[in-house]
Design a protein around this nucleic acid. Structure first.
Lengths: 113, 113
DNA sequence: CTAATACGAAACCATTTGGTTTCACATTAA
DNA sequence: TTAATGTGAAACCAAATGGTTTCGTATTAG
């Protein structure tokens, strides 16, 4: 199913280094905003905005607990990235296969012609 | 070794959908700029700029042939992305393992406590 | 009740981004 | 030689991005 109603793209979400750091941080624990922002040099508000972008991309989930808003990692959308990479890995593999075949054969190097 | 002198980040380079499309296009063939840009609604100059960004990230290589500049895919820097993903796949796997262990055991659901 | 805490919304700002048009330059074709 | 082709550089522009400060509001502690 994978609704993908995301207002923000996964590719764009992970483009920012702060947001990548956020994802790693949130992989350990569910954390409230202030605790999260203590790991960054920027303001709490700035961190909060990054969290919203990640949430829009489906990469984190927020949960209100009393006056806190706790965030946790939601890695599923990263599969889109994985699938995208897959394409190029196949390309890469084919190149290697071609090279292997070439090396094993006895033809002259065409780049030397 | 992997020099990584890249002025542009791989993560940032692939953030743009046009650039992702460029990478796929260039995986088929080495192509000159005008031929490349015929696949896009934007101007040749705009495409050229995207190509420069990809080149700065090491994702494409350019080669001058006569009055043409030909570009081809250079997938190696995508390994950085792959490595980054790896981290979260491990996280994902651990969660699944934990779930499996939980399901197989006979304890009550801790989230219901 | 009152004060402190946790947070988002709003307004604002500088910089970056993705795009355009115009121009200059090198290479190739006639 | 002259015209056409392929391209990058430059100047410019609107919108997006990442950041800040200030303010309002809800929740909890004293």
């Amino acid at each position: 199913m994978v609704a993908s109603s995301a207002k923000h793209d996964v590719f764009q979400a992970i483009a920012d280094p702060t947001r990548r750091k956020l994802l790693k941080l949130l992989s350990h624990d569910e954390m409230p905003v202030t605790a999260i922002s203590s790991h960054f040099p920027t303001s709490r508000t700035a961190v909060s905005k990054h969290l919203r972008i990640l949430a829009d991309a489906g990469l984190v989930k927020e949960r209100k607990v009393g006056r806190e808003t706790r965030y946790k990692l939601e890695p599923e959308p990263l599969n889109e990235l994985k699938d995208w990479l897959q394409f190029f890995e196949l390309y890469w593999q084919n190149k290697l296969t071609a090279l292997k075949l070439f090396v094993e054969s006895d033809v002259e190097d065409p780049s030397q012609k």
